[in-house]
């Protein structure tokens, strides 16, 4: 399967090249574009990024595997990312995790989401859901599916 950037993304890449001293800086922005375009980052996409910015594909692969938010496989279920770090733990993240158990979602344990003051929290598709209770989790999931 070949990968091609959309016209819109190609234009974005060209515009971004003007904003950095070196096109190598574009690896993260390009990986993000691929992930939003396709839902995950395929090896073909990595080759295409390599062609566009002149960084070896192996290096882009190394980068893609370093950062936890990049998916290198298609995502089958909705990712529910629950913060399990200290402030959330103190405020009941265990209860939220337990409550999610058995539901038709992919539960991902993540580290502090920067919402410690409104703990416990989870993130789904770039949106933080704060001050969670089991009931609140149910209504959020119902809304999203």
């Amino acid at each position: 399967m070949n990968f091609n950037f959309t016209e819109e993304n190609l234009a974005k890449i060209e515009a971004l090249k003007m904003r950095y001293p070196d096109p190598a800086a574009l690896s993260l922005p390009c990986l993000w574009m691929v992930q939003y375009q396709e839902g995950y980052i395929s090896l073909d996409a990595i080759d295409e990024i390599s062609r566009r910015i002149g960084t070896p594909a192996m290096e882009i692969y190394r980068v893609a595997t370093f950062y936890t938010m990049f998916h290198l496989e298609p995502q089958k279920k909705m990712n529910v990312q629950v913060c399990k770090t200290l402030s959330c733990k103190l405020c009941g993240s265990d209860e939220i995790l337990e409550h999610l158990e058995g539901k038709d979602v992919n539960i991902v344990h993540v580290e502090c989401l920067g919402s410690c003051g409104t703990a416990p929290v989870m993130q789904i598709d770039d949106v933080n859901y704060e001050e969670l209770t089991p009931e609140k989790v149910d209504s959020i999931l119902k809304e999203l599916t």
């Binding site: 993260l28 990986l31 993000w32 960084t55 370093f66 950062y67």
Partner: peptide, 25 residues
């Protein structure tokens, strides 16, 4: 210009941040 990270605590360390901004780990 906003440069978006992708989930790595260590990128808050200033030199790691610059490496990341250079497109690296």
């Amino acid at each position: 210009t906003i440069h978006r990270g992708a989930g790595a605590y260590i990128c808050g360390e200033k030199s790691a941040l610059l490496e990341s901004m250079e497109g690296k780990r």
